[in-house]
Amino acid sequence: MTEPAAVPKNPKPKVAFYWCASCGGCEETVLDLDERVLDVVVAVNIVFWPVALDFKRHHVEALPDGSVLAAFVNGAVRTTEQQEMAHLLRKKAKVLVALGSCAQLGGIPGLANLSSREGILQSSYCESPSTVNPEKVFPQTLYKENGQSVSLPGLFETVRSLDQVVDVDYYLPGCPPTPKLLWDAVHVLLGSELPPKGTVLAPDRALCEECPRKDTRPEKLTLKEFKRPQDVLIDEETCMLAQGVVCLGPATRSGCEALCPQGNMPCTGCFGPTSRVRDYGAKALSAISSIIDSNDPEEIEKIVQTVPDPVGTFYRYSLPSSLLRRRKLAPAAKL
């Protein structure tokens, strides 16, 4: 009988990163930890990180189930490959963290739910002004030639958030989450007391709480019109809403230290809702339309029109996680 292989004392916890339908900003956040990323690298063993390391899918498949302490997955799920990877990482990880707005709520890619797969393919490959595609060549999932074949992941009709595909343990909100938030989250996850499953790892109050402009919002604020940031010179100290600029701070979770208002831009809602709200866009809409100053239905209509693109404004990051999820498809389309 041979001796069992010596098990190394206190092996470093394994950590994985993956990106689905994403812009790469969440990977940047890891790098934005600056020199602290070295502390992370020292404390953990990164076993998968497509943007930075050369591990392949089969390396992940080879790991025992549940052997990865934490998998951080960013991006929304809109292709078959992303769905497969989500399931795979769920299997291999003890704790699955939805990193960023796209994974938590569906994110900007989620706005594709206003269209359809057919519509997106048409506009991207045919109709957009900079496309020249007279033969109407479209991507396909399988292409065979000379006895060989290549495949592409399939594109779903509907963009989904991560928890609409797999069970998610924690959420790190933001587009992207701030380095500070990520740093705090890593410490929490490496610590001994894990928060309840489903916790969003950020404060549970709205942004106004930590916004430096908070005191300048009057108690009775009413407006006759809303302005877009490009249309006005925004004063650097006054509450955005008080200046008529649509700011979703009141409906958005805090934790980002109000970076956008500090950069003289209004909050667009990337941290999503507090835990007490089910549909973010509905509350964002409430926060804005409650400021309208008029009793006349016609005038109210005019003021409401000064917010162009309401879905884009109120559901910019959260359409897939909303109650309606997506625009109703035309009857002919299939799911």
């Binding site: 206003l114 809409l285 409650s290 309208i292 109210i300 409401v304 625009r327 109703k328 498809l329």
Partner: peptide
């Protein structure tokens, strides 16, 4: 209580964009 009207009109626009 007139704030309902603004809420309703905005919500209607959102529903319209969602195909309702």
């Amino acid at each position: 209580c007139h704030y309902q009207e603004g809420n309703y009109k905005t919500l209607r626009r959102v529903l319209g964009e969602m195909g309702i």
